[in-house]
Write a protein that binds this DNA or RNA. Structure first.
Length: 285
DNA sequence: CGGTTACCCTGGATGC
DNA sequence: TGCATCCAGGGTAACC
C-alpha cells in the first residue's frame, strides 16, 4: 500500500520515538519476511542496540543503529505498517521492537506478508543495494534528470512513473494523481512528452507528494494507517484515484476507470477530457 | 534489451 | 448465513 507519502509518514512517526532508544530485544514473529538474514542472527545483532536514526529511501524504511550494529530496512509493500500504540493489539504482527526505559513495544504488521525485511552491514552497503534497483527519490529528482530518463523509453508514462528504477517512491495512486495534475494521459509514450509537459509533470510530482505528506498519506478500507492508528487524509482531497464516475475537479466531466498496458491488474483513473493523447503521439490500440 | 505478464500472499467487500 | 469471486497501495522472476 504505502507509496512515498505513506512511508514518509511512518518514518516521521518512528523518528519521534526511536532515535536514542535502546532495543531490549527484536522479536521476529514471521521469519518468512526476512531477506538475506536469519531470524536468529538478526535478533542476536539487534539485542541491546541503540537506534541512531530512522530514514526513508524511496519506499524503504531504514532504521539505523549506533556503532557497528548496521541497519534494518523494511519494505512495507502493499500492507505493511507500524504501530506505536495498542488499539487492541494489532493483528498480523511480524516484528516486535521491544524498547526499554521506559518499556514499550513497536509493532510491524503486514496482513498479506508481501513486505520484506533485510539487514545491512552499514549505510554504504544499504545505499549500494538501493541503487541497484532504484533511481533518484521522487521528491529530490531534478527536472532535467527526469527528462533524460523519460526520453529513454517509449512505454506509457504511467508505468514509467511507477518504475522504481526510473524514480523512487511513486505507486499507483500518486501516478494517477500526478498525471491528472499535469494534464497528461497515462498511456502517452514517455519519450513523446514535450519540454513543457515534462516541466509540468516534474512540478506536479513535487506538489502532489508534498500535499499527500501534509495530509499523512492515503487510507482506505482496513489498510494503511499512521503509526498512531489514524487515517491519512489525502483520499478525501484527491482528484481521480478511486473516483470513477465522479466529476473531474477541473472540468466536471466523469472520471474514468480503466486498465492500461504495462500494469497488470491495477486500476487507472483519469479524466478523458483533461488528459488526452495528442493525435500526433497516439498509438494504435 | 525493452517491454509485458504471471505470481507472490491474504483479508475484506461484494454478489448470488 | 454461506460460499464463491473479485479486488487491492508493490515488486520481481521469467518470458517474448
Amino acid at each position: 500500500m504505502p507509496e512515498l507519502p505513506e512511508v514518509e509518514t511512518m518514518v516521521r512517526g518512528l523518528r519521534g520515538v526511536l532515535p536514542g532508544r535502546r532495543l531490549r530485544r527484536l522479536e521476529v514473529r514471521d521469519p518468512s519476511l526476512l531477506q538475506g538474514c536469519t531470524a536468529t542472527s538478526l535478533m542476536r545483532r539487534m539485542r541491546g542496540g541503540t537506534v541512531a536514526d530512522v530514514g526513508r529511501r524511496g519506499k524503504w524504511v531504514v532504521i539505523e543503529l549506533e556503532g557497528d550494529v548496521g541497519l534494518i530496512v523494511i519494505q512495507p509493500r502493499m500492507t505493511g505498517g507500524f504501530w506505536l500504540i495498542e488499539p487492541d493489539r494489532p493483528e498480523h504482527i511480524r516484528l516486535s521492537f521491544h524498547l526499554e526505559k521506559p518499556d514499550a513495544t513497536i509493532w510491524y504488521c503486514d496482513a498479506r506478508r508481501l513486505g520484506k525485511v533485510s539487514w545491512y552491514q552499514d549505510a554504504a552497503v544499504a545505499e549500494t543495494a538501493f541503487g541497484r534497483s532504484h533511481g533518484p527519490d521522487a521528491l529530490r529528482i531534478d527536472r532535467d534528470d527526469l527528462a533524460g530518463r523519460l526520453a529513454r523509453t517509449s512505454r506509457g508514462i504511467k508505468p514509467t512513473l511507477m518504475d522504481q528504477k526510473v524514480l523512487a517512491g511513486i505507486g499507483n495512486i500518486y501516478a494517477d494523481e500526478t498525471l491528472h495534475r499535469a494534464g497528461l494521459h497515462p498511456e502517452r509514450p514517455s519519450s513523446s512528452l514535450s519540454a513543457d509537459e515534462i516541466t509540468r509533470l516534474h512540478r506536479a510530482i513535487g506538489e502532489v507528494l508534498a500535499r499527500a505528506i501534509e495530509l499523512e498519506g492515503s487510507s482506505f478500507d482496513a489498510g494503511y494507517r499512521t503509526v498512531l492508528g489514524l487515517e491519512g487524509g489525502f483520499l478525501a482531497q484527491n482528484s481521480v484515484y478511486g473516483r470513477e464516475h465522479q466529476p473531474c475537479p477541473s472540468c466536471a466531466r466523469p472520471i474514468r476507470k480503466t486498465r492500461i498496458a504495462g500494469l497488470i491488474g491495477r486500476p487507472t483513473y483519469y479524466c478523458p477530457t483533461c488528459q488526452v493523447i495528442p493525435p500526433s503521439t497516439s498509438r494504435s490500440r
